[in-house]
């Protein structure tokens, strides 16, 4: 299979703590890979490694065959930070127009990305005056600019209503079907079923890696939350 990301022995130290402790994993093209685990287990840290903004990384992490963080990769990755990283004092369109110019993508992309996150009707609203869910959708829209080959999405569906969440997951799968690799993190286990493949993380190590069905079967339970708990108990 064609992999967007291949990592071997990935370790990261933040402060004096070893946050990621020897990870081996791949993120395949054409699938939605879920990165799930409890708060503080290292999901955001792993994503920061992939986009090349995390310091003190050891091990090898290749993205499209190049070391993570390489200059040539920067225009091929769409990154959604966990907290909305957009300018509060600019309108939605101004935000997207700015990032589009930085990325060098066509202005037509702006409307497409706004439609994709269902914000078409609010384009001229200033971000400061948006609801939390609307802000996080602006944040997501920025990552979609220019149709990146790898999408690194840090909890993109937090705080959104079920209808919108559903439509975003449909979009993630459509992006994967169109040939992108999509990595989505979440600490809500009920989103697990929506992923093609799961990486279950706890305290900086993976405790399971496979399709939702395979993970459930191996643990002998019928939902991912139970599987997670039973693997954790088994590991003790």
């Amino acid at each position: 299979m064609n992999n967007a990301v291949e990592a071997h022995g990935l370790e990261v130290t933040r402060g004096s703590r070893e946050v990621l402790r020897g990870l081996d994993f791949t993120v395949p093209v054409g699938e939605v890979t879920g990165l799930l685990g409890p708060s503080g287990c290292g999901k955001s840290t792993l994503m920061r490694v992939l986009v090349g903004v995390q310091a003190k990384v050891t091990g090898t992490v290749q993205v499209f065959g190049q070391p993570a963080g390489s200059r040539a990769l920067r225009s091929r990755i769409g990154y959604v930070t966990q907290a909305a990283s957009v300018y509060d004092d600019l309108s939605i369109t101004e935000n997207l127009a700015f990032f589009a110019r930085v990325l060098g993508v066509d202005r037509g992309e702006i409307d497409r990305c706004l439609e994709a996150v269902d914000l078409g009707g609010h384009a001229d609203q200033v971000v400061r005056n948006l609801s939390g869910g609307q802000r996080s959708r602006v944040n997501l829209a920025v990552a979609l600019l220019g149709k990146p080959d790898l999408l690194v999405l840090d909890e993109p569906t937090v705080g959104l209503d079920p209808v919108l969440r559903e439509s975003l997951w449909v979009m993630f799968h459509r992006l994967a079907d169109d040939g992108a690799a999509v990595l989505v993190s979440s600490h809500v286990m009920d989103e697990a079923e929506r992923c093609d493949r799961l990486l279950l993380m706890r305290d900086g190590v993976f405790i399971a890696d496979g399709t939702p069905a395979a993970i459930k079967q191996k643990a002998g339970v019928d939902d991912i939350e139970q599987a997670f708990l039973s693997i954790v108990r088994g590991a003790r």
């Binding site: 903004v53 920067r74 930070t81 909305a84 990283s85 300018y87 990325l103």
Partner: peptide
């Protein structure tokens, strides 16, 4: 605000 991190992950 995190926009610096986002910009530095972009080709800037």
């Amino acid at each position: 605000g995190g926009t610096l991190e986002r910009l530095l992950a972009m080709p800037l």
